[in-house]
């Protein structure tokens, strides 16, 4: 097991905390097994965490909980605070002088940033705070569900409801036609028309494949269209082709591509992180329709993924946050979420 005396703090209980910086620390020997056991997607692979951490504004830190020398829980988050430079990457060493540990999944704001073995609760994540940094004044937990909220300390906390996350169960439908048939009338008609028209469109070629068959630079270029639409001071940084390249080389990542049949130009793309039960569409972007994009490609892409998920025996798809009305119309189910700040 990889333990580092400087970063490891014994706790008052039988748990030890090990804090790792994926930019500088080598992959712990237990990491691959821990990730598999916890069902953490490709963006939790150690090399992906390292790339994410280098391409972040703030230090990304991973805290591992150990019991009797074995890892029993993990949490990841950025050490967010001041000084903050929105247009600069994190310095090679050091970080905020004062701040909070902002716990969330490494490349997605839609999932919790922790996994805990049986017998542990999210309250145990709070034990990591002293090891994060001297100026760390608290822990900000994102995507806290009602059950987790109940175990957090009632005092010294601030709770704010956030957008729900949406899951689209498909385990109880036989095929994509049955799934579409179970939707409300208006969406049903729309999806049937989109499915038929896009499949019959001789101008484009739709391909579902392991992501390594797609050029990440091409995908990054296309993602800029979507990222520019939602750009703001605190919005996530643009997705770098290098990060995508490392992600897309992995076996457990999938792309749905829409290409011009004549020129092979990439018109739209979706990148999905696979999972034994709940794959997650992570990136989506398309050329605007007026510049040659495919009308309704987003809906066709989701239908393709539903078809793929049913065919591969998945429970369903994690659709993340946002576009609630659209996701509800597709049969997705919301899960209420809160952000909780616990100060020391």
């Amino acid at each position: 097991m990889n333990t580092k005396p400087m970063n490891t703090k014994p706790m008052s209980t039988d748990l030890d905390v090990e804090v790792l910086d994926p930019r500088h620390d080598p992959e712990p020997a237990y990491w691959a097994a821990l990730r598999a056991r916890a069902g953490l997607r490709a963006d939790w692979a150690w090399d992906m965490l390292g790339t994410s951490a280098w391409l972040a504004r703030l230090p990304l830190l991973v805290a591992v909980l150990h019991r009797a020398g074995a890892p029993v829980g993990v949490a990841t988050g950025t050490y967010s605070g001041l000084p903050y430079h929105p247009k600069r990457f994190v310095p090679v060493r050091g970080g905020p002088l004062v701040g909070v540990w902002h716990v969330r999944a490494p490349a997605s704001s839609a999932l919790p940033g922790w996994w805990l073995d049986d017998g542990l609760t999210v309250r145990d994540v709070l034990r990591c705070r002293p090891a994060i940094g001297r100026g760390c004044a608290g822990v900000l937990l994102r995507q806290v569900g009602p059950e987790d909220l109940a175990v957090l300390p009632a005092r010294a906390r601030l709770v704010r409801p956030t957008e729900p996350t949406w899951t689209l169960p498909v385990h109880d439908v036989g095929d994509v036609t049955e799934w579409i048939g179970g939707l409300r009338r208006k969406r049903r008609a729309h999806l049937r028309a989109t499915w038929r028209e896009t499949n019959d469109d001789q101008r484009i070629v739709v391909d579902v494949a392991t992501a390594s068959t797609t050029d990440p630079a091409e995908v990054a270029h296309l993602l800029r269209h979507n990222e520019n639409k939602y750009h703001g001071r605190f919005s996530p940084l643009p997705t770098a082709a290098g990060y995508l390249g490392a992600l897309m080389r992995r076996d457990d990542v999938l792309t749905v591509t829409y290409r011009d049949r004549d020129t092979s130009a990439l018109l739209a793309v979706g990148v999905t992180l696979d999972h034994p039960r709940w794959p997650m569409p992570r990136y989506w972007s398309m050329l605007p329709v007026e510049r040659g994009g495919v009308r309704n490609a987003y809906f066709h892409h989701l239908t393709v993924l539903v078809d793929w998920a049913i065919g591969n025996g998945k429970q369903g798809l994690l659709l993340g946050k946002g576009k609630s009305e659209v996701k509800e119309s597709l049969g997705a189910v919301p899960t209420e979420q809160s952000a909780v700040l616990v100060v020391r």
Partner: peptide
């Protein structure tokens, strides 16, 4: 470039460089 440009950040952080060495 290392502090603000994604390509150089990623390339020099993960692979490295000389004159100057940044990581």
């Amino acid at each position: 470039a290392f502090a603000t440009v994604p390509f150089y950040r990623e390339h020099w952080a993960l692979d490295g460089r000389t004159d100057p060495v940044l990581v």
